[in-house]
Amino acid sequence: MIWFKPSILSPSYADARLGWGLAAAAGLAAAILLLIVLLLLRESWPVLQRVGGVRFFADQGWYPAEEMYGLAPMLWATLAASFGAVLLAGPLGVASALFCRHYAPFSVARLYRRMVTLLAGIPSVVFGFWGLTVLVPLLAQFQPPGASLLTGILILALMILPTVALTADAALAAVPDAYLRGAAALGLSRGATIAGVVLPAARGGIISGVLLATARALGETMAVLMVAGNVVQTPTSLFDPVRTLTANIALEMAYASGDHRAALFVSGLMLMGLVIILAAAAWRLSGGRLHG
């Protein structure tokens, strides 16, 4: 009896081939990110080489036709809009998640969670459109022209709220029941349990969710483009119209060429850098897994 004869035709070899094929596919999927970075570098290289990186921060203003490439006002606008949106959406999102897990009756919680999930699926262009037709005119009655950093913040906050709420909800769900039972056995009230036990236990997940939401806010284009007014200036008040880095790309790619186009790729690189920093922070916090 000859038992285990390995042969070229045996399934083990087919498995090895399948493994290599799949690994190649995975490598290709991973290479897309590298390709994006390389291409952004390649396209922005001419202007980076001629003008240098510093002037993108140092130049007074963005006048590409006159070779003034100051991205600083738009960078500030981007940061201000994102920061404001996170400031609003963070607490609201965590409160929404707490509402679902600990306050609402079961049926209400289910309905509410479904609503938040649907809200997460609404396209940014619809948020922007609604902001433009409803929010901007409303605000213009108090403080013309209406399209401003504030409207940008409000719309962005509404947009990233589901991200915060859903990740916080998942983090709250992951808090072991034993903690809750332990807190109840000590006679802690609901508020004290949440403040003292639940939130500290879910802190990591909540913070990484907020970081994810920040990344989304930084990278969002359409919603802010449509409601924030698009004037290149460093914001000094909430009612100033502003233009973010993303909106700038969307507005000017249509006609940009030469160094101007390359400068837009530089701003793309800058956005990419911001997002990678945030992703790295969230990655560290969540212990190696971001999405899904």
């Binding site: 038992w3 285990f4 045996s10």
Partner: peptide, 14 residues
């Protein structure tokens, strides 16, 4: 059956 079941070139599926 007198064959090394831990041989590296063994066909595990068989």
């Amino acid at each position: 059956n007198r064959q090394d079941a831990r041989a590296p070139d063994l066909d595990v599926q068989t």
